[in-house]
Every structure is written in structure tokens, then in C-alpha cells.
Computed example of a mutant assay.
Amino acid sequence: MLALQLNSENLPYPDPIHPIIVHFVIAMVLFSFFCDVVGYFAHNVRLLEVGFWNMFVAAIAIFVAIIFGQLEAGLANIYPAVQPTLNFHTVMGWSLGAMVAAITAWRFVIRDRLLRSKRDRNPLKLSPAYLGVATFLVCLVLLQVYLGSKLFWVYGLHVEPVVEAMRQGISP
């Protein structure tokens, strides 16, 4: 049987991959929201197109982030104080994945209507309902950022000194 060689951060690869992908997703969702809001008020179809493509890429990348998050959470040294925050972060991650996918699908329908109306010289814009749901999504993303930051900066998941202390039997 092959045993995984874990490094000083308790990972089989040099650095945690989950935060790298997650920061990409966060940027894409926030930039999509920014483009949609500015495009809505400026009646700029090009910005709405940029907003759509950012959300589309974020919808794909969020599931890659979730997969690496699950893998890295499974390799982390979990102690009792971490468990509630990690559980909430995990549930929120899967929920955000579903929400981003659903909002992207909704945005695809809106984009299709925008493209058709553009051909008819009757430009349509985003609905206020979509912008309201996107605002709620941004708030949930910011909550998820807080939870992830807490797991790293407060609880020290995959932080070398914490991993080393736990290997020596010292519990945080």
C-alpha cells in the first residue's frame, strides 16, 4: 500500500491549492457583480457581457475549489475548537457552489434575451430581481471569506507551526 508523503503543512503538494482557486472565484464573482451593476446603470451591454463571462468561469472554478477544499480539509489536523467553523464553511461552500451555478444559469437566460433584443435594436437590461439575488450572493461570498480566513488565521489549518505542534502532541 502506498502511503502519502505529507509535507510540513500536512499536504501532499507544496502549498494549499484551495485558497489559490478560491481567491480566483471570489475575484470573478465580485468583478461580475461590479460589471453587472455598472452595466445596468450605464446601459452598457458590453459590461453585462463581461459580467456574464466572469460568472460563468466562476461557476466552473468554484467546484474545483470545493474539491480541493474537501481534500485539504480531510488532510488537516482538526481539533474540537475548529470543527464548528469548518463544518459551517463546508456547508456554505457547497451551498455557494449550487447558488453560483443557478445564478449563472439564470444569467445565461438573461444574456440570451439581451443578445436577441440587441439584434432587434430594443436593448433589454438586467432585472432588479437578478441584481438583488447577486447582491445576496456577494454577501454570502463575503461571509465565506470570513470563515475561510478564520480557519487559517485563527485556527491555523495547514499552517506549519500548528501542524508541527500537533505532530509533537501539543494541542492548540
Score class of each variant (00 low, 15 high):
G69H: 01
V45R: 15
I62C: 03
L48Y: 06
I66S: 06
F68M: 10
V45H: 14
M55S: 09
F41P: 00
Q70G: 10
I60M: 14
G69P: 01
A61S: 14
N44R: 07
F63H: 14
Q70L: 14
I67P: 01
V64Q: 09
A61H: 05
Y40S: 09
A59L: 05
G39E: 00
F41H: 15
A61I: 02
M55Y: 10
A42F: 07
I67Q: 09
E72T: 00
I66T: 04
V64R: 13
V50W: 07
R46W: 12
N44M: 04
I60E: 11
A42E: 10
G39F: 00
I66A: 12
V57F: 15
L47Y: 00
L48D: 09
E72Q: 14
I62D: 01
I60R: 12
G69T: 01
G39S: 03
G51P: 05
G69S: 04
F52V: 04
V50H: 10
A65Q: 03
L71V: 15
G69R: 01
N54Q: 14
L47P: 00
Q70R: 15
A59V: 02
I66C: 04
N54K: 07
W53T: 02
L47E: 01
I62H: 02
I66R: 07
F52R: 14
F41V: 08
A61D: 02
Y40L: 08
A61F: 10
I60Q: 09
L48N: 12
F63P: 00
H43I: 03
V50M: 12
A58V: 04
E72F: 07
G51C: 09
F63N: 10
W53M: 07
R46T: 11
F63W: 13
V64E: 06
E49A: 12
A59S: 14
M55D: 03
A42W: 05
L47C: 03
I67K: 11
G69Y: 00
N44Y: 02
F52P: 06
H43Y: 11
G39I: 01
F41I: 08
A42I: 04
A59R: 09
V50K: 13
L48E: 10
R46D: 11
M55P: 06
L47W: 03
V45I: 15
A42N: 08
N54A: 08
G51A: 12
E49H: 15
Y40D: 08
A42L: 11
F56D: 09
A42T: 12
Q70V: 10
V50D: 08
L47K: 06
F52D: 03
I60P: 00
E49D: 13
V57I: 11
V64F: 12
F52N: 06
A58T: 02
F68Y: 08
N44F: 00
A58M: 09
R46V: 13
F52L: 12
L48T: 07
L71G: 07
A65T: 00
M55I: 03
L47N: 01
A42G: 06
F41A: 06
H43K: 15
L47A: 04
L71I: 15
Y40R: 04
V57N: 10
V57L: 15
E72D: 05
V57S: 11
A65S: 09
N44I: 02
F52T: 02
F56M: 14
E49V: 07
F68L: 05
E49L: 15
